[in-house]
């Protein structure tokens, strides 16, 4: 029988592919959320180089998604645009970017980074506490083992981004202090 070695290999690879079983669902979900934001947000046309330019999802700082994000966007298209995931260590390296997930590793430089991004049509997302107070647009927080959204429409509007009302309906609206 050659099925057994094949099955063992699959199980092994799956086990190896998911380093943390407990944390996985959270970031897997957050990866999907991150990808779905693309559907509910409208960027200004100048945000894209051309009609076929990919929609870029960037991760700043330590990547907590452990590959889930890549899984989530693989093969997907949003509004006929391919999705692209980029990772940056620093904000200064940031190129064309439409959705920026600021990892909690960047907690310290959050305020500065957000300020630096002002004037750019970049949807900023983070699961760091106090993100919305720092001028972030969408915060992801875990409650009752569920991911909840906190959205600051003003910040988005300031970035010339249009947020779908449906996004707003399922989120908690926060305002810039």
């Amino acid at each position: 029988m050659q099925v057994l070695p094949l099955l063992c290999a699959a199980l092994l690879s799956a086990g190896l592919g998911r380093p943390c079983a407990a944390a996985a669902p959270e970031y897997q979900l957050k990866a999907i959320f991150l990808f779905r934001f693309a559907e509910f947000v409208e960027w200004p046309p100048q945000a894209f180089a051309d009609a076929q330019a990919p929609l870029t999802i960037c991760v700043l700082g330590e990547d907590p998604f452990d590959g889930y994000l890549d899984d989530a966007v693989r093969g997907e298209k949003v509004n006929d645009r391919p999705l692209e995931v980029r990772r940056y260590r620093e904000l200064g390296q940031l190129g064309a970017c439409h959705i920026l997930f600021i990892s909690s590793s960047e907690r310290e430089r959050m305020k500065r980074d957000l300020d630096a991004l002002k004037g750019r049509s970049v949807l900023t997302v983070s699961d760091s506490d106090g993100f919305d107070r720092d001028g972030g647009m969408i915060g992801l927080e875990l409650a009752d083992n569920k991911v909840r959204l906190e959205i600051n429409p003003d910040a988005a509007r300031a970035a010339d981004l249009k947020l779908s009302s449906k996004l707003l309906v399922s989120a908690r609206i926060v305002g810039t202090p």
Binding site: L29, F33, E39, F40, L167, S170
Partner: peptide, 12 residues
Amino acid sequence: ADNSTGALAFEN
């Protein structure tokens, strides 16, 4: 359906 996209998308 349209109205429920958000809820579904973000599992609310």
